[in-house]
Amino acid sequence: MIKNKLIISDVTLRDGNHAVNHSISREIIKKYCEEAEKANIKIIEVGHGNGLGASSLSIGKSLITDKVALTTARKALKKAKLSIHSIPGFSRITDLQKAIDCGVDIFRIGTNSTEIDTVYSQVKFCNKKKVEVWGVLMMAHLVYNKKKDYLKKIKYLVDLGVKTIIIMDSAGIFLPGDIKEIFTNIKKKFKVNLGFHGHNNFGTAVWNSVIAHKYGAKIIDASIKGFGAGAGNTQLDILATVMARLNMKTNINLNRLYSLAKVFPTYFKKNVIKYKNPYSEPKNIMSANYGLFSGFASKVDYYSDKLNLDDIEAFKAIGKKKLVAGQEDLIINALYNLKKKK
């Protein structure tokens, strides 16, 4: 059924940071990288949930610096490629240079899909430094419309010389039919490597990924036990198994992967933040329905708890504000106004 080559890119140590308020430690990175490599994972992404340089009071402070995280991962990885996520506006060129110095292999530069042209200077910099640069269309549903605006955004990246593009369903709103349409249309027009990054708010992340692969995605992002922002990501252990059932060779050692999935929660035992299996709560379902960034969930939880607000009411309020990924600082403004009205 599926003929394209498949590479699974493991985002546990980056997107997963959203689930534990960016508290993934040096020890966890080391242990995880070693085990993931034994399971034959090819690409491992590391960093703050919002990527390079994003550690901040507004989004959440990382427990460790980018440099510590990246050098720890670099040391632990022998074969697998080390990748980072970078959003211009949070990160800057000097951060990219630091990441180059730490030995990062893949630079995934992304923005909210509507504003993709803001990747310009970072992509140019990576090209100049001759490092592997990918483009990431975050919140891709914002350009999925009748006018097929996503094709214009892809063209912008292709014209900039980007050879690999990830379609990121940051809100967890896409259904398999949407994925089929998007990938078919891109493949028709562009010769570019494609990838898909799912979130599981509607319980469709694994199947969206399978469909994305069937219609042209070479790279699929996934995380162990779905550990990621909001309702979590495409669950790596399920995805690898399903792909094997579909006779798709990923070279992943499933037994090793299952052991990793079993042991993973124990990594957090000594951690301040309690490990929780990602699960699509009503608020996550609603968040996706509003097309909000999955990563908002932890902030909304924190502030609605402090202000004694119902989390569903809280999501409704920020849904109306149409906040996009990166606007964590305005969540509190919206919730304050909600509180005042009461």
């Binding site: 949070f90 909210n112 305005l330």
Partner: peptide
Amino acid sequence: MININPAEPPVNMM
């Protein structure tokens, strides 16, 4: 840090 918001109607600078 800076964020560009695509919301319609456009948001005031905040």
